[in-house]
Design a protein around this nucleic acid. Structure first.
Lengths: 332, 332
DNA sequence: TATCGTTGTGCAAACGATTACACAAACGAT
DNA sequence: ATCGTTTGTGTAATCGTTTGCACAACGATA
């Protein structure tokens, strides 16, 4: 309480103040350990008085459990990821687990970053980023069993993972757009190299194939509004597509703006535009995006469920798949 | 490399393998310590072979420095914060500092959360959230000297902080809007209780006063699009304002949508709408918001500069103030 | 050759908790 | 009065590093 002293008091010092041994101090802070309730109350009172809290670093060293979780993400600045991550952080906090954030975007050295985090003996690793390879993650966190979110399935590796399946939802969306008379489709990828992006594209490509259609044009962005805008302009200048499926919602908004502003084409009559993710912004009145949407809360519930199984000692690997469903807006 | 063994190798074991003592292992990983370069090379080679990395938890315990930074934020799901936070995370990572994320939004117990983080002996604390009181932060992190971002100035506390000053910029914006003939202003707050929100309101109120005007109506939201939309509807139904200053950009977009969709009023002719923050989304073609904007990169540079001074032993308190400048869009 | 830095290494004590083990006190049952 | 069990506490080892101190080996100097 007397908050001005610079150094934190240790259990040994508190022990002296309370007239007990440091072992007893420790026991006072462990819910189920043999200790007299009078002693415990006295210790907790003295601890409060001197602002004592057990040092989590020392405890982690002894326990071999840090209660830290590494969150490997592309970026938190992009709402398409941040909304999910926020939900996960809340769930972790509720379980007294603290997230360490690793942002892989830009030109940071992803491998070095993961190696650094791994030296902190994190109890769990959740990989959102599609910019790190699963093999790298497994190698670097070889004592931790990472949980991979929506990642390439490799048969020979036993890694827990949460996958998404939008085949059905993508089919419904394509049916609707084709039914509205659109015939010439383009796919605007979020990134050139990621497996998840290829998977998402395949859902739509398969659905098109059922109508005897295929993507007539392709472009690659970087999940950002600006890239969605720019690539859509180029795309619409070089080919006469009347529907664009985008890698995420933010790019879809960029593409919609580009079509409207630069080409003078409006959704859904002149051109259909579809996003993916179903972030809150997609439902804003100014966007009202048609998008292949994910139940983010259920998604993060699944992550937490796997974490809890790992904590219980059942390291799986566990695999959970969630379906994506269309959100119908006015852009397609 | 042989990534399948579950336990991490320790310096003592590596010492045996390399035929040296564990002290020498440690020295091999400390850039400037007395060690033969032949020995170091050999150790590093063996370390690579067995996948050894020094345990950061043990090191932190010994060093009394964890290289962890607590980031106390409201939410990362809201782009108005996430963009800044992303920039800070990159800057920290570049310095081998790892951020622990604490999200205060919703109903998490903020104090308990901060206490938990403080037990990890974080080297620095950066408080973005306006939902925690400065006094609480100082009490809980009494060994760490938190850095407060845009917070209430208390004379008797020595806390480093970064402030923003938008008095001039707000003046320019008000001048323009009044010049366009608007006379009846409302302020749509981001939150009822935060000091920073009151400060921002004051910049605009003072500017209005110079024109002999004052806010005719007030409303309070929660920094979200939905609250911006809902409060704007109520506001516009109960009073005839022709300009709304909003607590952040997301709320401004909500208010703009509400005016357009529910009331049929368009910006900037029927109503002027102004945001605050200057997030990327404000410049999107579909928004093109007039907003009192902050240079986020400079802002986070300032945070890092204070952190570096603290690391150098100069605990200040340091205080840096940055000016906000208007971004002119088509909404006002 | 004796002396003096310099360099490289090992020993052992921290850092601040947790916990197996030992033991004394208290208690109930015979 | 005796024994066995339970309860509460202290002692000391442990977790995996870092680092002050001691010391041996070495080359350079006089």
């Amino acid at each position: 309480m007397s908050g001005t002293n610079r150094r934190r008091i240790t259990s040994k010092e508190l022990a002296k103040l309370a007239g007990v041994s440091s072992a007893t101090i420790s026991r006072a802070f462990s819910p189920d350990s043999r200790i007299g309730s009078a002693t415990r109350d006295r210790i907790l009172a003295v601890a409060r008085e001197y602002g004592y809290q057990p040092n989590a670093i020392a405890r982690s060293l002894n326990n071999q459990r840090s209660r830290l979780v590494a969150l490997v993400v592309n970026a938190i600045g992009n709402p398409c990821e941040a909304e999910e991550q926020q939900l996960l952080v809340h769930r972790l906090q509720a379980r007294q687990l603290l997230p360490i954030l690793l942002c892989c975007a830009d030109h940071s050295d992803r491998l070095q970053l993961m190696r650094l985090a791994s030296t902190y003996q994190v109890d769990h690793v959740v990989i959102f980023s599609d910019m790190v390879s699963m093999q790298d993650a497994v190698d670097i966190f070889h004592t931790t069993r990472p949980i991979i979110v929506s990642f390439e399935p490799l048969e020979n590796e036993d890694v827990s993972n949460i996958r998404i399946d939008g085949a059905v939802g993508a089919g419904e969306i394509i049916d609707k757009i084709v039914g509205d008379g659109k015939k010439r489709f383009a796919y605007l990828s979020g990134t050139k190299s990621s497996w998840i992006d290829k998977l998402r594209r395949k859902w739509f490509a398969d659905a098109l194939a059922r109508h005897g259609l295929a993507f007539e044009a392709e472009a690659f962005g970087d999940y950002s509004y600006d890239s969605g805008f720019k690539e859509a302009v180029l795309l619409l200048h070089r080919s006469k597509v009347d529907a664009i499926i985008c890698g995420n919602d933010v790019m879809a908004i960029g593409a919609r703006d580009a079509a409207r502003r630069v080409l003078g084409k409006n959704t859904p009559d002149d051109i259909a535009i579809v996003g993916q993710d179903g972030i809150a912004m997609a439902a804003w009145d100014c966007n009202d995006l048609t998008t292949l949407s994910l139940d983010h809360a259920a998604f993060m519930d699944a992550v937490v469920e796997v974490i809890e199984r790992h904590e219980a000692g059942d390291e799986g690997p566990h695999s959970i798949t969630l379906a994506c469903t269309p959100r119908w807006g006015s852009t397609a």
